[in-house]
Simulated assay, not measured.
Amino acid sequence: MAITAAQVNELRKKTGAGMMDCKKALVEADGDMEQAIDILRKKGQKIAAKRGDNEAKEGLVFAEATADGKAGVLLALNCETDFVAKNDDFRAFVESIVKIAVENLPASIEELKGLKYDEKLTIDEKIVEQIGVIGEKLDLSKYEVVRTENVVAYNHPGNQLATLVGLNKSGDTAADAGKQVAMQVAAMNPIALNKDGVDENTIQREIEVGKELAIQEGKPADMAEKIAQGRLAKFFKENTLLSQPFVRDNKLTVEQFLNQSESGLTVTDFKRVALS
């Protein structure tokens, strides 16, 4: 059966596969469009199996808030090479997943992967199909969602880093302050909102390190605990968001900046994803 250019073009639009791959699939399927799509999907599964051990450290990260600002999503889709990450088709594919996530607000990455991408495929299945199209390992490696009164999304130029910040108040003033705090999260990478959010293992590790450093500096053992507690307080100040010096005015903490912007304004949650 002769395969027409129109058939090839239609399959290409449906799958994103290259012209030659589409033609070969259509020839193998004897012109049957649905069978040709399945052939390309199986190709993706074979490539995924072969490239399973490959490292996928490149990719794109996107954050986006819902239209009403009451929620936001943040996700990373990894690939193997910078060449693919900078490709417009790959970017469009990532953005299409973000759109589905914003519309559905799944609670976990597993739920996100199970959502319908189109009439036939889930997001997870579509990623496998795209592995066949692109020829590289793809990995939906990170997904976060924040729901609160006001969510601000920030995408750092280059889309290798993005953040979400949830605030307890809405409005223009809160949104502007939230954008600045979202940039703070991107730059300073806090580990928690405040000291109450730091896990006990991290606290104990910092205390032990502080004691050891004090002893190495020749301080008496009975003073080591007090010195370690002082160092722990400094650790909290440098590594918890609300206690950090505000990057645009280090005379203020982030907490003070927010309250100065609008009385009672604070952060209720934040997320940060960066490609390593």
Rank of each mutant, 00 (worst) to 15 (best):
I127T: 03
E129T: 08
E129C: 06
E129W: 07
Q130H: 11
I131W: 02
G132P: 10
G132Q: 05
V133D: 06
L138I: 14
D139Y: 13
D139K: 13
D139A: 15
K142A: 13
Y143H: 08
E144L: 03
V145G: 03
V146F: 02
R147Y: 06
E149V: 10
N150Q: 07
N150P: 09
V152A: 05
V152Q: 00
N155R: 03
H156W: 06
G158A: 09
Q160V: 03
L161I: 01
T163C: 12
G166K: 00
L167D: 02
L167C: 07
N168E: 02
S170A: 15
A175H: 14
D176W: 06
A177C: 13
A177N: 09
G178P: 02
G178V: 01
K179S: 14
V181F: 05
A182E: 01
M183S: 09
V185D: 01
A186Y: 09
A187W: 14
M188F: 07
M188Y: 06
D196G: 13
D196K: 14
D196Q: 12
G197Y: 11
V198L: 01
E200K: 06
E200V: 02
I203H: 04
R205F: 13
R205P: 05
E206V: 11
I207C: 01
E208L: 04
Q216E: 10
E217I: 00
K219V: 07
